[in-house]
Design a protein around this nucleic acid. Sequence first.
DNA 1: TCAATATTTCCATTATATTGGAATTATGGA
DNA 2: TCCATAATTCCAATATAATGGAAATATTGA
Lengths: 126, 126
Amino acid sequence: MKAALAALTGLSQETRLSIFRLLVRQGREGLAAGAIGEQLGIAPATLSFHLAHLERCGLLDARRDGRSIVYTAAFATMNALLTYLSENCCAEDACCPGAALSASQREPRARRSRSHETSARSRRRD
Amino acid sequence: MKAALAALTGLSQETRLSIFRLLVRQGREGLAAGAIGEQLGIAPATLSFHLAHLERCGLLDARRDGRSIVYTAAFATMNALLTYLSENCCAEDACCPGAALSASQREPRARRSRSHETSARSRRRD
DNA sequence: TCAATATTTCCATTATATTGGAATTATGGA
DNA sequence: TCCATAATTCCAATATAATGGAAATATTGA
C-alpha cells in the first residue's frame, strides 16, 4: 500500500502526469531531461524537481548517456499500481471487467496490436 | 484527462485512500460518515473535508438517510480511471496484459468469483 | 586545461493541502 | 417546541508542495 500511495502521489500532479505520459509514449528508449523540458515547456529546476519525485516513487528510471540523463517510464511500477487499484479499489461486478484478479491470476489473451506506434494511435489527447 | 487527474489527486492521500478502500469493501450499501470516522479514527472536521474532496472528484456518492449521510464508492469513476491509466500510462507488452484496450473493446470473460465477500478475502491488508 | 553543454542542487518565495476546535445546520423523537 | 444526534462549515494554525533564478556539478570535445 505504501508503494501504491507513492505512485498515486507521483501521478497526481499535472506536470508529473504529463512527463510520465510523454515517457510512456517514448517506450524503452526514453528521453533526455532536456528534451522533456523542451517538449513540455518546463523550467530546468522545476523539471529536475519533478523527475526526482517520479524517480523516488519508482515510476521512472534514469541512466546517464554522455552529458544527458535519459529517463524512462518504469512499466513494472505502473503495472503494480493497476493491480493494486484493481484488487483494492474495485468491486468486480460493479466496476471493471476482470478486476480483483491479481496479475498472476490473469489469463494471457490474444493481443490486438503489438507495436507502440499502433497503440499510440488509439491514445486519447489531453 | 482532467477527470483522471482529479481522481488521482483524490486517491493520493493516505486518509482519503483508506476511506475509499473502506467504502469499496462496503459495496453499494455504503457507510455513514460517523461510522467511517469511527472505524478509521478521523476527527469529524477532517473527515468532512476529505469526504467533500472525494465527492468533488466524483469518487464518492452521498445520500442522506435520516440524520446520517451515507457515502458509497463511485465505481464508474474508478473504472474510468483504470481505463485512462491503461490507455495513457501503459505500454501493453512491457506493462499490463491487455492494457491499451478501451473498456468497450475489452472482451467479457468468465468470472472467477462473484460476491464481494469472496473477492474481499483475497484482498491485501495494508 | 578550458569552454560549452546538460543537468542538478540550493534557496527563497509563493501556493496549496491538511488538521481540528468551535460554531452552525439538519433531522428525528419525546 | 426542545433536546440529542449527525454532520457540516468556519476559521486559523501548521505542514507540505511547487516554482524558478542562481550557483554548483558532471561530461565531452577542442
